[in-house]
């Protein structure tokens, strides 16, 4: 297998995460696995210094969000660990310094691994794409209205994985949220084709990788052209073979 093979790339990312004993793949690790399967994920990079932050910023483009990375800090914004709408290299350096000093002041004992520099996604309609393993039917994929509405409306549909693009389009049609995609009240139609591709990709991912128990892509921003996964989360199975 070549390094282009998504399974190989994803497995490397999972292996590095399991070594540090995680039960979940968060942030960059989950992004890597998702990207290996062709899922369009918002661009980001980890910076360990002001200089590194400036360097990756040039590559990512603007505007950017910066977020502290520390396993000791759960609520990043409470400690001044998040800066949004940063739109210059100078601003990135300043934001990095400010985050570190805020965190040091609020949590002097926290171990800080660095700062996540993330390209800010333009506002899009929020949908959710997920995958789970059913005891009887095995891997299955979910689609629905995203963001905070997932739990509220439960406007979701399922298909067993792997699935074809046609099956993905069918499952989109089953939800009421599909009316949003078709262009609701004069807003332009959204890119249902790319949503379907994302569902197919998540289906392939969970079929290929037995280590992964479930996947949440929430929200998936959907635009008239294209989609962007803003937050990707993967839960690993309890017993992971080393």
């Amino acid at each position: 297998m070549t390094s282009w093979d998504p399974h190989t790339k994803a497995s490397k990312a999972i292996a590095s995460a399991t070594r540090i004993g995680g039960r979940a793949l968060l942030g960059l690790e989950a992004d890597k696995v998702a990207r290996a399967y062709g899922i369009r994920v918002v661009k980001s990079a980890l910076a360990r210094s002001e200089k590194e932050a400036a360097f990756v910023a040039k590559d990512l483009g603007f505007p950017l969000a910066l977020k502290v990375v520390s396993s000791d800090i759960l609520h990043k914004s409470d400690v001044g660990g998040v800066k949004q709408g940063v739109d210059s290299v100078k601003g990135v350096k300043a934001a990095y310094a400010e985050i570190l000093s805020n965190v040091r002041r609020a949590r002097p004992n926290a171990t800080v691994e660095g700062v996540l520099v993330q390209r800010m996604a333009p506002e899009g309609h929020e949908f959710v794409v997920g995958a789970t393993r059913d005891q009887q039917f095995g891997p299955a994929v979910m689609f629905g209205l995203g963001g905070v509405y997932v739990e509220l409306f439960r406007d979701v549909s399922f298909r067993l994985a792997p699935l074809t693009k046609k099956e993905a389009l069918d499952m989109i049609d089953e939800t009421r949220a599909s009316r949003l995609l078709a262009g609701f009240r004069g807003s332009p139609p959204l890119d249902a084709g790319e949503v379907a591709e994302t569902l197919v990709a998540v289906g392939k991912l969970i079929t290929d990788l037995p280590e992964i128990d479930s996947v949440d892509v929430n929200p998936l921003f959907v635009y008239p052209k294209g989609v962007l996964a803003v937050d990707v989360r993967m839960i690993l199975k309890k017993a992971v073979p080393s």
């Binding site: 789970t132 979910m142 439960r154 067993l160 479930s214 949440d216």
Partner: peptide, 21 residues
């Protein structure tokens, strides 16, 4: 289930989806 998708997938949803598919 410890994820959104897992918790919503309970009950009848997967059966319904599998039959449909």
């Amino acid at each position: 289930a410890s994820s959104h998708t897992g918790s919503i997938a309970g009950q009848d949803a997967i059966f319904t989806a599998a039959f449909e598919q």
